[in-house]
Design a binder for these strands. Structure first.
Length: 455
RNA sequence: GUGGUUGUAGCUCAGUUGGUUAGAGCACUAGAUUGUGGUUCUAGGGGUCGUCGGUUCGAACCCGAUCUUCCACCCCA
């Protein structure tokens, strides 16, 4: 016996029914992206390592899948680096390509490379898989799809507003009953760091603050202490731990807190404008929630920060996004502000599955299966099958004249809607029996009647 | 990357203190039913017990390693 095959951890196979459900999600997202004026692009699944490494912080670098050099290139392996335990240097000598970790950095590379062929502001969407060497968990895979929409070349806040509306439109269309779009602004986080006198420690500050929900005020304070933040700074931060209420109230409190920070005030202004405008325009199902603890790990955001959570299910964020001003700068193109969002299709799938929100009508059902009664009847059936196909009906002929029972069972298993029978008697008088597999009803008709039924 | 958890038939799971030929339900195949699927009844096929190694007269069961699953961190979609 051969060895039982397996697939790598964090990856999955998809059966036809599952692909149909995934396409339902992709199609819904794609439709809305198009409607909001985004155009599709695609980029390679792997990039030069230098394009990706260093863009996601040390944690991110650790999770990038590297592609091993092949052939003679392996001879260039830096054995000295290995002996000196300089692992990053050693792996760079073994690998010059890597699987893409997200769609945003490859997009930045794309914009720089094609800058003279693009009209700015350039709006693109991209639906492709990404890979992370993460340890798998519920809703966390090593290969998963991201559905990104970004716009570069404009600082206008109308795009932030558009993206909030887009979140609302897509997730409402997918019938997710209750979800919250959390919004924050990196400038406010910068302001907080300024006011507390810890400008250089903004990452530590925001990472700790991000956990307020999970570990509570005391937990955050402990973490800040552990990171070496001074006691006086922690005291200054304390008012932040108890900000509650409506968005307007939260903004008011924060405005006072950030009085001395011009950056912080700018962040408040931006957030107010976005919230007020979205409120005027109205949302379908989304709750829009200002959350000053929202930090997100990616250290490239500079303005608005988004995160979307489905309520009532145990699942991490299903969407994220934000504004980044400097992303193309590392590839040599300055002053190109961008803002974008990402839908996590695989997590959305798990949410819809758990809440049983997928439509029952599948895209890949067979309309009609013709039963095979033998050589003569088979020839007639083939002709009628082609007739039906020519008017767009999905149908097929069973390949051999097995027992009728077996053919019926097959039709049942593949969930064919109708079974068509042309047996000896039907062959003689040019008729056909059509059986509805759901109701069990069966009736006789001719070719014209058949075509009419499916027109 | 840290700590824990899981693995027995296609699927969901039993399996006595280590002791003959490892079981069930569902699924599958065939028949009951020679022009009718889903229900029912009968019979049948299918497992080197994740993998490699060790302890033992003897291992699904004990030990080690490794892979995988899920969970809490880290981080994130």
């Amino acid at each position: 016996m051969a060895v039982k095959p397996t697939i790598p951890k964090g990856t999955r196979d998809f059966l036809p029914d599952e692909v149909a459900k995934r396409n339902y999600i992709f199609n819904t997202i794609r439709l809305s992206f198009q409607k909001y004026g985004f155009r599709p692009i695609e980029t390679p699944s792997f990039e030069m390592s230098s394009t990706l490494i260093g863009k996601y912080g040390d944690e991110g670098d650790r999770l990038i899948f590297r592609i091993l050099n092949s052939g003679d290139k392996l001879l260039k392996a830096d054995v000295n680096a290995l002996e000196n335990r300089e692992l990053p240097k050693f792996s760079n000598s073994l690998s010059e390509k890597a699987l893409r970790y997200d769609l945003t950095v490859p997009f930045a590379r794309f914009v720089v490379q094609h800058q003279n062929e693009l009209a700015f502001p350039f709006k693109r969407y991209q639906i492709q898989p990404v890979w992370r060497a993460d340890r798998p968990q519920h809703g966390r895979y090593q290969e998963f799809y991201q559905c990104d929409a970004d716009v570069v070349g404009s600082e206008s806040l109308i795009y932030e507003i558009d993206f909030v509306l887009l979140f609302d439109e897509v997730l409402s269309a997918l019938k997710i009953p209750d979800f919250t779009i959390k919004i924050n602004n990196r400038k406010i986080l910068t302001g907080i760091a300024e006011v507390t006198g810890e400008s250089t420690r903004i990452i530590d500050l925001t990472v700790a603050l991000d956990k307020l929900d999970k570990i509570g005020a005391d937990g955050v304070i402990n973490e800040l202490r552990a990171k070496g933040i001074s006691e006086s700074s922690i005291q200054k931060m304390k008012p932040l731990f108890s900000i509650t209420g409506q968005n307007e109230e939260k903004l008011k409190v924060m405005k006072t807190f950030l009085t001395s920070s011009t950056v912080g005030q700018k962040g408040i202004e931006e957030l107010e404008y976005i919230i007020n405008t979205v409120n005027e325009l109205g949302l379908n199902r989304a709750n829009l929630d200002v959350d000053f603890t929202l930090a997100r790990g990616l250290n490239y955001y500079t303005g608005a920060i988004f995160e979307v959570k489905a309520n009532g299910v145990n699942m991490g964020s299903i969407c994220g996004g934000g504004r980044y001003d400097n992303l193309t700068e590392t590839f040599g193109l300055k002053n190109m502000s961008g803002v974008g969002i990402s839908f996590g299709a695989d997590r959305i799938y798990d949410v819809l599955d758990e809440l049983e929100l997928f439509p029952t009508e599948s895209e890949n059902i067979l309309q009609v299966m013709f039963v095979n009664f033998g050589t003569k009847e088979q020839q007639r059936s083939l002709k009628w099958v082609q007739q039906l196909r020519s008017i767009g009906v999905s149908c097929e002929l069973y390949p051999s004249s097995n027992k009728l029972q077996k053919q019926m069972k097959y039709a049942n298993d593949i969930k064919a809607k109708f079974v068509a029978l042309i047996g000896e008697e039907e062959y003689e008088n040019n008729s056909i029996q059509l059986k509805n597999m759901e109701t069990g009803e069966q009736s006789s008709t001719d070719l014209n009647g058949l075509l009419k039924m499916f027109k």
